[in-house]
């Protein structure tokens, strides 16, 4: 009897590593004496693992106390000449700050778009207010990056700004529009 041939051979690795559900493990244990093919696979993996264990143990590693006292002292001598990175520097590497920086960058892009829109349309009071508030948000986000993820404009809001700009351009006369484009070109 050769036993089931469709067993993935990795199951025998899991078997050796004790990584199987107990009931499956019991089933496989029952199968082994009746399946030459699977028995061979298991034996192969056991011998590879067993040989590697032997190899690992053959590598000489120091064990005496004096060696490790000396090793410890060498490490600590280096540690004493080493500066610990300050928590502030460490925080710079944290993902939260990366997100905040990305948020600030997004603000700069959107803020400048709003600012340009306000200027293009002759700086009407409503537009100037929008620009002012975007500047306030920019300043605040630089002072306190933690707030940025909560205040960035959503893509929908960006669309709204673009729509408003397009609407204003539509309402302009041909001459006014030409002046705007000339200013843009400058």
């Amino acid at each position: 009897m050769s036993g089931p041939r469709d067993l993935d051979e990795s199951i025998w690795i899991d078997y050796i590593e004790d990584e199987l559900d107990p009931s499956l493990r019991d089933d496989l244990t029952t199968l082994i004496p009746h399946s030459g093919e699977n028995k061979e696979i298991l034996k192969d993996y056991q011998s590879i693992r067993g040989n590697l264990e032997k190899v690992g143990k053959a590598i000489e590693v120091p064990t005496d106390e004096n060696y490790f006292n000396d090793f410890h002292d060498r490490i600590m001598a280096r540690v004493k000449n080493t500066k610990m990175q300050s928590p502030v520097v460490v925080r710079l590497f944290q993902k939260r700050v990366y997100r905040a920086v990305a948020g600030v960058a997004l603000f700069l892009i959107i803020g400048s778009a709003i600012w340009n829109t306000a200027n293009l349309t002759g700086g009407k009071p409503g537009d100037i207010e929008v620009a002012k508030s975007s500047n306030w948000l920019l300043e605040s986000s630089v002072k306190n990056p933690e707030m940025v993820p909560n205040t960035v404009l959503t893509p929908g809001e960006t669309d709204m700004v673009m729509d408003a700009a397009a609407e204003k351009l539509d309402k302009m006369s041909e001459k006014e529009r030409e002046q705007v484009f000339r200013r843009l070109a400058d």
């Binding site: 004790d18 011998s47 590879i48 264990e53 032997k54």
Partner: peptide
């Protein structure tokens, strides 16, 4: 040869490594 080499020494039954008589 690998199996022969394995059979020539006693494999310790460490944690997580189950030795099964085949």
């Amino acid at each position: 040869s690998l199996i022969q080499n394995y059979d020539d020494f006693v494999v310790p039954q460490g944690a997580g490594h189950s030795e099964v008589k085949t």
